[in-house]
Computed example of a mutant assay.
Amino acid sequence: MTKGTAAVPAVPPLEPKARFGDLVAAEWIKLWSLRSTPWAFAATVVLTLTITVFGAIADAQHYTGYDADHKAYFRSFGTLADAFSRGASTMVIVGAGAIGAITVLGECTTGMIRTTFAAVPARTSVMAAKLAVVTAATTLLGVACAFGSYAAAQAVLAGQDVAVGLGHPGMMRLLLASVLLAPVSALVGMGLAAVIRHSVLTIVATIALLFVVPSMLDDRSHFGVSLVHMTIPQAWDRLGHAPASSPQWPWTVWGAFLVLAVWVLVAAALTVFTTNHRDQ
């Protein structure tokens, strides 16, 4: 440096921006660092399998008293219903919805979300990573519940020689719909949590939207049936069990898939983009 020349302060090198893969890894760690997460996953699986086993045991006990026609009907449709029942689907909806809500509320209610956004100002990327992690984790939850229920039911029904394989008509579609039920419900819980930001209100709203409201809808009119068809439980039921909620106004399998897709897109948009308009 020549005499009389002012010293130029050294400029610290800019830290590289967090890659999306890094954000996903961080969100995965945060998900499983919550004490409630393993318990919520385990409780959902255990309760789902319990409902399935007790239902299959009851049907297996009644099977010996059926006449020939009823036995034939059970072999075609009863085994399908026992593989993953409506009671099991309710448990997955409630459990996965609560898990999705908790993943957002865990940071928002403690204020840790401010620290996260201070470290990574790209809020949309953070929430997208959180969304990807929850989707992956609850999809695995759906696989465990659906195929675990199928295996448990067949083990029970094998005692009456009425167990069926995965090639049974409608079985794979039922299991696919049951697997999808978990991530769809979890994303709805995330979306509501991102909007409401209150633990009790979010859990109540999630259970009400996913379970209570659909059970209260009237399917005796075309308008009522249309509303029923827009619910997640009915979309799952259409894919797995029933041809329609009302034979007067049937709907298609692809229509049920479309309903699930719309729920996913709306919930994902609420989760990712509402944080841009909040103070935290």
Rank of each mutant, 00 (worst) to 15 (best):
Ala7Pro: 07
Val225Lys: 01
Thr90Ile: 13
Phe147Gly: 15
Val262Phe: 03
Ala144His: 05
Trp32Glu: 08
Val24Gln: 09
Met127His: 05
His241Gln: 12
Leu217Pro: 01
Thr271Val: 07
Val53Ser: 04
Thr115Arg: 05
Thr231Tyr: 11
Ser185Trp: 07
Gln160Ile: 04
Ile203Arg: 11
Leu14Lys: 15
Pro247Thr: 13
Gly191Ala: 02
Ala158Met: 09
Tyr63Arg: 10
Ala269Gln: 08
Thr138Asn: 02
Ala6Gly: 11
Gly189Trp: 08
Leu210Glu: 05
Thr124Val: 12
Ser149Arg: 00
Gly78Tyr: 00
Ser125Glu: 15
Met127Val: 01
Thr139Glu: 02
Trp254Leu: 12
Ala235Arg: 02
Thr202Arg: 05
Ile113Val: 14
His168Tyr: 00
Arg75Lys: 15
Phe223Pro: 05
Gln154Pro: 02
Ser199Cys: 14
Ile113Thr: 11
Val94Gln: 01
Met190Cys: 09
Leu217Ile: 14
Ala235Gly: 06
Leu47Tyr: 12
Ala40Ile: 07
Ala208Gln: 04
Ile207Trp: 06
Met127Thr: 06
Thr44Ser: 06
Phe273Ala: 07
Ala158Ser: 14
Gln280Cys: 12
Leu270Ala: 15
Pro214Glu: 02
Ala235Phe: 03
Gly100Asp: 01
Ile57Cys: 03
Ala42Ser: 09
Thr79Lys: 02
Val200Phe: 07
Asp59Lys: 12
Val228Gly: 13
Thr124Met: 09
Ala144Met: 15
Leu258Ser: 10
Gly189Met: 04
Gly191Lys: 00
Ala235Thr: 09
Leu258Tyr: 06
Thr5Tyr: 14
Gly55Arg: 00
Leu34Val: 10
Val94Ser: 04
Leu31Glu: 02
Thr206Val: 04
Leu157Lys: 03
